[in-house]
């Protein structure tokens, strides 16, 4: 069984055919799946990554892009700690819809969700329709992170996840400081991350408890435990 310190729940959203599923397979299998098909409903993948010395398990929910599927994917926003809004740098429409997806994530997910805009297909330089500069400016205006990736070459894929995970970790540490400063749990709750609730999308894993000898022991625990 894999040991980890934290468990973060991420969602991948964005217009259809921008490469959400390809980013996910690229992260998990380190390869580009040729001829991959559309996602229907929601698909799931998980991976453990190292972020500033901590082992973080990512639970990633890859959603269908079509508008009609939004009622199905909606329930997955609720518990997410991070959201990746993917657009296609060769297709301006998908970039324009970024704002809609952002509004969706802000209204449906937790208030403190960490969001990153991801411009995919960066290997298609000659077909580029959205420049790096304008996208990063847009991200800055909306106070979200931004990176460009290529699921085909795998460039920047892991960085995206690491970047978001880092941001969430920082928020958690801020919360912990609140506790140490004597503000207690109220400080933690009013802070950014509330790991005590089940749906928070963030769990602390107790590595010492994870061994095969005691499978009945709860392996993943909240900080409050």
């Amino acid at each position: 069984m894999d040991a980890y310190d934290y468990l973060f729940k991420f969602i991948l959203i964005g217009d259809s055919a921008v490469g959400k599923s390809c980013i996910l397979t690229s992260l998990i299998e380190n390869k580009f799946k040729k001829g991959s098909s559309h996602t229907i409903g929601v698909e799931f993948g998980s991976k453990i990554i190292n972020v500033s010395g901590k082992r973080v398990k990512l639970q990633i929910w890859d959603t269908a892009g079509q508008e009609r599927y939004r009622s199905v994917t909606r329930s997955y926003y609720r518990g997410a700690a991070g959201a990746l809004i993917v657009y296609d740098i060769t297709n301006r429409d998908t970039y324009h819809h970024l704002i809609n997806w952002l509004a969706d994530a802000r209204t449906l997910a937790r208030a403190d969700i960490s969001i990153i805009a991801v411009g995919n297909k960066s290997d298609l330089k000659d077909k580029r329709a959205v420049t790096f500069l304008e996208a990063s400016r847009c991200a800055q205006e909306n106070e979200i992170l931004f990176l460009e990736t290529s699921a085909l070459t795998g460039e920047g894929v892991e960085e995206v996840f690491v970047k978001v995970a880092k941001m969430i970790l920082n928020k958690i540490e801020d919360g912990m400081q609140h506790i140490e400063e004597g503000l207690g749990y109220h400080g933690l709750f009013s802070g950014l991350i509330d790991p005590a609730t089940m749906m928070s999308g963030v769990h602390a894993g107790a590595r010492s408890l994870l061994n095969e000898a005691s499978p009945a022991e709860p392996a993943s625990r909240c900080i409050s435990c």
């Binding site: 729940k9 799931f44 749906m199 769990h203 709860p218 993943s220």
Partner: peptide
């Protein structure tokens, strides 16, 4: 084998069962 108890952490089950 899933993590956590039945009431508290059905979130973990959720992912595992879906997977």
């Amino acid at each position: 084998h899933s993590h956590g108890d039945a009431e508290g952490e059905s979130g973990c089950y959720f992912a595992e069962i879906h997977f």
